[in-house]
Amino acid sequence: MFIATPLREQLVRVQGDRLRVLVVGAGVAGLTLAQALRAGGLHPVLVERAADHADSGYMLALMPLVEPALRLAGMRDAYRARSVRFHRYVLHGRHGQRLREYAIDSLLSRYGEYRGIARGELMQALAENGAAVSYASTLQSLRQAPEAAHVVLREGDAALEAAFDAVVLADGLHSAGRDLLLQADQVSSFDCGWGGWVAWMDSDAAHADRGDEIWGSDFFVGVYPVLGRAGVFVGGHRDDMRAGPQAFAAHIRRQLRHADDWLLRALAAVAESQADPYFWKLADCRSATWAVGRAVLLGDAAAGFVPTAGIGAGMAMESAGVLARRLLATDAGGVAAALRDYERSQRPRVEAAQDNSRALTKLMCRRSPALAAVRDVVARFVTLKAVLRPIRKLLDSAPE
């Protein structure tokens, strides 16, 4: 469980550590890192600008890449208990017709399992053994010196000064901490103009391990398995979505000539959302460098992902595990070298995965009936081995 902890209390605990670490951002990457360091005997200070972890957000499909980080943090069993096996993937054409079904984990089994989980469930799994976090807390300033990184942290109206051996900035795609570390021209972005709403619906035995996607002429629908339910993503160009979920779902429904009840239920889940559904903007960022002195970027702050390849969260967790091992193996004097080594090993892998996500986004996010028709024809002949080739390359060269 998450343990809301006053910032002063965390600062007292960390002073006795052989390596004083500050983690800014308690999302997937920051929390994975903090829990791995805690399992290794440290007391990293974990701060989060949000008021709590109540937002469940969206669903995730996690590759076996996450297994080493979960084992390091001692959270593998908790993760498995809150997730489901993602076994089958069904691709539908622009009118809802079934094009192909893949046993998606058949080529991944030697690496581990491909699993579906709600983001909120993943966060709870990572916090299973207790996770101290100071909410409504932010990094205000960062000044590096040879002997330490000096920071000012704000919690409510209080500003607290502290010194750390390492500062990890894991505060997301729009990282404020990154702005303290890099110049604006060191961060680039990619935005395809699309976005999508997330909703949830009950699952059943027939779909408990199955994901479905429709690649339409000007829309995308994805339905993915998580524990006890299914996550739904309905996307399109943001200009086409301004009338709201109900109107856009009706627009899609008019194009589906062969949709089964499962896909129609998914559209209804978005159209009938009582509260404003979570909106996922399909944009990312890339930082030209990650490590500067005693400070380093992690997760979306280093390289954000559009979700088309379903690997962003997995790469963030893998990177957190790699960084945790580097930090646990060094002392205060070796931090800068350890952070450079982490960047040298992880940045090429992460950027290769990011390139794959961008390429899939350019293929998916098009408003062309002609292209959609061609896609439908080609998809019937694409093998699972070809689909998973970039993922298997990453798994074959994984750090552990």
Rank of each mutant, 00 (worst) to 15 (best):
C192L: 07
A301C: 05
F190D: 15
A206R: 15
L267H: 11
A352H: 07
L160Y: 03
F219T: 08
G74C: 07
L7R: 07
L91Y: 13
R358V: 11
L142A: 10
D218A: 01
I252N: 12
A320Q: 06
E48M: 03
H87R: 15
V23A: 07
R344A: 13
D276F: 01
E147C: 00
V28M: 12
H87V: 07
G96S: 09
Q255L: 09
H92K: 04
A249G: 08
E343M: 03
D179G: 02
G310H: 02
A247D: 06
R375F: 06
Y58D: 10
G93F: 13
A230D: 13
A329I: 06
V90C: 12
H258N: 12
L31I: 04
D212G: 00
D209A: 08
H258F: 10
P369E: 12
M364I: 14
V226H: 06
A54D: 14
M59P: 12
A131C: 15
L33E: 11
A309Y: 11
G314V: 02
L153G: 02
A166W: 05
R119F: 04
A249T: 11
D300Q: 00
P348K: 03
R49E: 15
D239M: 00
G116K: 05
A337V: 04
R20E: 09
V167I: 10
S56V: 06
A275S: 12
W215G: 06
N129R: 15
A145I: 05
D77G: 11
P307H: 09
I104P: 03
A303E: 10
P64M: 01
A359C: 14
N356Q: 15
G222C: 00
D171Y: 07
D165V: 00
R154Q: 15
T289L: 14
Q10F: 03
G177S: 08
A34C: 12
A303S: 07
L182C: 08
R265M: 00
P64K: 01
G334Q: 08
E272C: 01
Q35R: 13
G57A: 11
E128S: 13
A230P: 08
A329D: 15
G196E: 11
M241I: 02
A148H: 12
A353W: 05
E318Y: 02
R325Y: 10
A324H: 06
F2P: 00
G96C: 06
G304R: 01
F164V: 02
F248Y: 14
R265Q: 13
M241F: 05
Q354F: 04
V234M: 15
V306R: 03
A398S: 10
V350I: 09
L142M: 12
G334R: 03
Y58C: 03
E318R: 01
A353P: 12
E400P: 13
R242C: 02
V152K: 10
S357E: 12
S287A: 15
A118C: 08
H95R: 15
R38A: 04
V84T: 13
V270M: 14
A73E: 14
A50H: 15
